[in-house]
Design a protein around this nucleic acid. Sequence first.
DNA 1: GCTCCTGAGTGAATCGGTTAAGCAACAACT
DNA 2: AGTTGTTGCTTAACCGATTCACTCAGGAGC
Lengths: 348, 348
Amino acid sequence: MTKSRGKRRQKVTLQHVADAAKVSKATASLALNNNPRISEPTRQRVLDAVEALGYVYNQRAASLRTQRSYTIGLVFKDVSNPFNAELTSGAESQLADHNYSLVLATTNDNLEKQARMVKTMLERDVDGLILAPTATTAAASLQSLMDFCPLVLLTPYYESLAVDCVGMDDANGTARAVEHLIRQGHRRIAFVGGFATDLTRQRRLQSYRGTLQRHNIEFDPALRIAGPVSRRGGYDAVHQLLSVPRPPSAAYCYSDVIAFGVMLGLRAAGMEAGRDFAVIGFDDVPEASLWHPSLTTVSNDPRGLGEQAAQLMLRRLATADATIKRVIMPSHLVLRDSTAAPVHEMPS
Amino acid sequence: MTKSRGKRRQKVTLQHVADAAKVSKATASLALNNNPRISEPTRQRVLDAVEALGYVYNQRAASLRTQRSYTIGLVFKDVSNPFNAELTSGAESQLADHNYSLVLATTNDNLEKQARMVKTMLERDVDGLILAPTATTAAASLQSLMDFCPLVLLTPYYESLAVDCVGMDDANGTARAVEHLIRQGHRRIAFVGGFATDLTRQRRLQSYRGTLQRHNIEFDPALRIAGPVSRRGGYDAVHQLLSVPRPPSAAYCYSDVIAFGVMLGLRAAGMEAGRDFAVIGFDDVPEASLWHPSLTTVSNDPRGLGEQAAQLMLRRLATADATIKRVIMPSHLVLRDSTAAPVHEMPS
DNA sequence: GCTCCTGAGTGAATCGGTTAAGCAACAACT
DNA sequence: AGTTGTTGCTTAACCGATTCACTCAGGAGC
């Protein structure tokens, strides 16, 4: 048989169950919800009928009345970024424990697609939305989104909004990374990747400059390279960096993927990270430990981030007027081989 | 202000829109669905009202009547496996194009959790289910699942079921991998990872044995190591392999993550993949090209797999009695450094 | 003038649950 | 006996859309 009969089982509804148990639909409903007003024998009859008929509860129908869909929307750029995959996994496991499901959508960092996806989520009547806004999302549009459903942001950079959010400790993470490089003797340290509109990048850049300043190192705009958050972006940055009059001996990269690109770019230029040049990333994605050389990076527990976001959402759903909570996940520097060697002079 | 007002906008329903446009609810509905029976001026009045009131369509309510929820459930072991992340990404993008959303659930390869998740999906009234069944899932239970909703399996190994499915070309992929090793001069080739219950593994093992046989190489059970699909699993297997009387000079691994573990295990034993030992993986996850040495592996386009699965589902939803389609995604061997060196004698 | 269309819109049932209000039967208490 | 309470269940409204069957004007045809 290679032909589907396309014959689906006739849907069994609560009414059928009620009939079979010889009670009213209301009683059946109450029985299934363990309402104490229903006697034990009756409840058992209902449960037996459910079993016998193979009844499947229709959450969707129920939600129409209860106004609770038990689904949470999760919207971010891309699942295939390992950071987001971990984050999703963390959120999913928390939510599943509380009987919530996760509906997924991705934006490709495109504002228009984000709007479309958010709309879809609202039409699906999600109970809440966990959102990593694209770089250019206006605070006002997030504010108005909050009129429609509870919101948890995956970024700490909308301070003007009274919104729950969870973010990484960009300032501290960056400071520690840069300080590590300075301690190793580096004085010419590049900042690589990301675009100027990106709020997270702005914060890290600020911390980078502050840290340099605290160590009396002058900030050199030529060492700040903007570019896409991808391997390619890092690879291409290396060209620019090496052609600066006094080239850097180290790079602090906006994210691990960029750092990977930088390492590849260095190799193409006959240099090796960890020996001829120091490279630090941000995220600590699983690959970071696998690279050769392994990547020193700021670790951020993406799974924990997802769990936190889920928990903030669950909390807000439980008590709508709870105090706004902004969670900053601690980050710590993971020392690996890409910064192993102390500074040494660049061949100009 | 650090206190949420918890004040959500009062939900605007179609009735409100109808009132504002001075038409009936029915007319409003028809207008929004571009029904030709509604005149253009009236339709415009409705659209204006929608705009003015900020009406949000309630897909959930509609689905109660239409019996179409426009959501597809995706159930597999774990998002954080990069293979699955890519697959999800592929499926999501296809489905989003057709206005479907993805609801996600993970099983941790646990039969009981799988049952729970599938039940949740059915209660959510998904239009269809894309499922990567856990290793021990009985065909019968999948069969009965098909009574409830369209199903697409992410494995080709339930031939007895009339079910759409998409899988990898395990037999061919394995054969090419093993043949490559043989051509390099290897005669003692291990098969590493996975458990005997796993249908996919069975298929690959069979192809591995067949290929050896075709080249007149005797199968040695001591070179077949079972174990978890993880880095650890691969790492631990190395111990066993190296203590076999005549140790192997190459390993064909059940998956890339296992291969990574094997490489780490080799290094711990003072050997290097690609130089002292050949290693091949399966999947071609992004890390495969990043490892050092980079991993020769069977490439499988996980994103394409996800896209295919989504397309099979969309097709089945469009025509319920379409012919069953079993898609085998072509796989090809990606030659990298982990198999670069020709065979050389093992230090026994 | 009368019937018959046709085009445009409406009323009401419907999907599958939940829940407020009500009611019958019986026990307990004055 | 009459009031009051409880217990256990039922009736019917409701959630927010869709859709079938119907109405109602106005125009065409005779």
